[in-house]
Amino acid sequence: MLKAWQSNPHVSEWWDSDEPIGEEGLADTRVARWIVSFAGRPFGFMQDYAVHGWDDHHFAGLPKGARGIDQYIGDPEWVGIGHGSAFIRTRMDALFFDGAPVIATDPHPENARAIAVYKKLGFKVSGSPQKTRWGFILPMVAKP
């Protein structure tokens, strides 16, 4: 299902379809991953991760306990109708409730749709666009 979603143009434009999420990836305790569904119908993927889990992570300067998030709506029928904002907000609320002092995200600087959603959810640009080992990103953070 993830491979099929990642082959959709609205996902593959921004998400590396070669990114492995095999057994090794699923066993990585630095990252929590979910299939997002509504009324029993899966439509998206979400992950959050410990930004301090990698020595060279671009968010390593954030406070201890900071989490990073990534996600996409895989089913094109569900794009643009508000479900992305809803499931991202739900996860943000849970992370803040669990004590995360800040949540970071890093959309591609040209991904206007994602940037608009993040801004709507309270994220602010926290630096200049930059090249990282995970791609070209625009750093953004949200606080409780």
Score class of each variant (00 low, 15 high):
residue 81 I to L: 04
residue 34 W to I: 07
residue 70 D to I: 10
residue 100 A to G: 10
residue 29 T to R: 11
residue 126 S to I: 03
residue 141 V to T: 12
residue 49 Y to L: 08
residue 34 W to Y: 06
residue 2 L to Y: 04
residue 14 W to Q: 03
residue 38 F to K: 13
residue 25 G to V: 05
residue 131 K to Q: 14
residue 98 D to R: 15
residue 45 F to R: 00
residue 34 W to L: 11
residue 47 Q to L: 06
residue 6 Q to Y: 10
residue 116 A to T: 15
residue 101 P to H: 09
residue 64 K to P: 11
residue 105 T to R: 13
residue 79 V to I: 08
residue 40 G to Q: 13
residue 55 D to K: 15
residue 17 S to N: 12
residue 133 R to L: 04
residue 91 R to Y: 02
residue 16 D to M: 00
residue 10 H to K: 05
residue 88 I to G: 01
residue 41 R to Y: 15
residue 21 I to A: 04
residue 113 R to Q: 12
residue 76 P to D: 05
residue 60 A to E: 12
residue 89 R to D: 02
residue 60 A to Q: 13
residue 88 I to Y: 02
residue 103 I to K: 12
residue 4 A to S: 15
residue 129 P to F: 07
residue 98 D to Y: 13
residue 116 A to K: 14
residue 39 A to T: 11
residue 36 V to A: 01
residue 22 G to N: 15
residue 19 E to Y: 07
residue 16 D to R: 06
residue 128 S to I: 14
residue 125 V to M: 01
residue 21 I to E: 11
residue 96 F to G: 09
residue 139 P to A: 07
residue 47 Q to F: 04
residue 59 F to P: 09
residue 58 H to T: 12
residue 18 D to A: 09
residue 30 R to S: 09
residue 56 D to A: 06
residue 1 M to C: 07
residue 134 W to E: 06
residue 111 N to T: 06
residue 93 D to L: 07
residue 65 G to V: 03
residue 60 A to H: 09
residue 72 Y to V: 02
residue 141 V to E: 15
residue 131 K to L: 12
residue 53 G to V: 10
residue 140 M to Q: 09
residue 129 P to L: 05
residue 123 F to N: 03
residue 98 D to S: 13
residue 143 K to E: 15
residue 92 M to D: 04
residue 18 D to N: 10
residue 116 A to W: 13
residue 98 D to V: 06
residue 100 A to P: 11
residue 115 I to G: 08
residue 36 V to K: 02
residue 25 G to P: 11
residue 51 V to L: 00
residue 43 F to E: 03
residue 108 H to I: 08
residue 19 E to N: 13
residue 115 I to Q: 03
residue 55 D to L: 14
residue 100 A to T: 05
residue 97 F to R: 15
residue 140 M to K: 08
residue 21 I to T: 10
residue 28 D to H: 02
residue 78 W to C: 01
residue 40 G to R: 12
residue 51 V to M: 08
residue 42 P to Y: 10
residue 139 P to R: 08
residue 135 G to V: 06
residue 54 W to Q: 08
residue 29 T to L: 14
residue 133 R to C: 04
residue 71 Q to M: 07
residue 122 G to R: 05
residue 120 K to S: 00
residue 88 I to R: 01
residue 127 G to M: 00
residue 68 G to W: 11
residue 32 A to C: 14
residue 37 S to P: 14
residue 63 P to G: 10
residue 73 I to T: 11
residue 6 Q to N: 07
residue 83 H to D: 03
residue 63 P to D: 11
residue 14 W to R: 03
residue 15 W to A: 00
residue 90 T to L: 14
residue 142 A to F: 08
residue 111 N to H: 08
residue 53 G to C: 09
residue 116 A to S: 09
residue 58 H to I: 15
residue 8 N to W: 05
residue 83 H to S: 03
residue 52 H to K: 15
residue 135 G to A: 05
residue 43 F to A: 01
residue 78 W to M: 01
residue 16 D to G: 01
residue 132 T to R: 03
residue 34 W to V: 04
residue 71 Q to I: 01
residue 51 V to I: 14
residue 58 H to C: 15
residue 9 P to G: 05
residue 57 H to A: 06
residue 20 P to D: 03
residue 43 F to D: 00
residue 144 P to S: 12
residue 62 L to A: 13
residue 73 I to Q: 01
residue 45 F to A: 00
residue 2 L to W: 02
residue 76 P to N: 05
residue 55 D to Y: 07
residue 18 D to F: 10
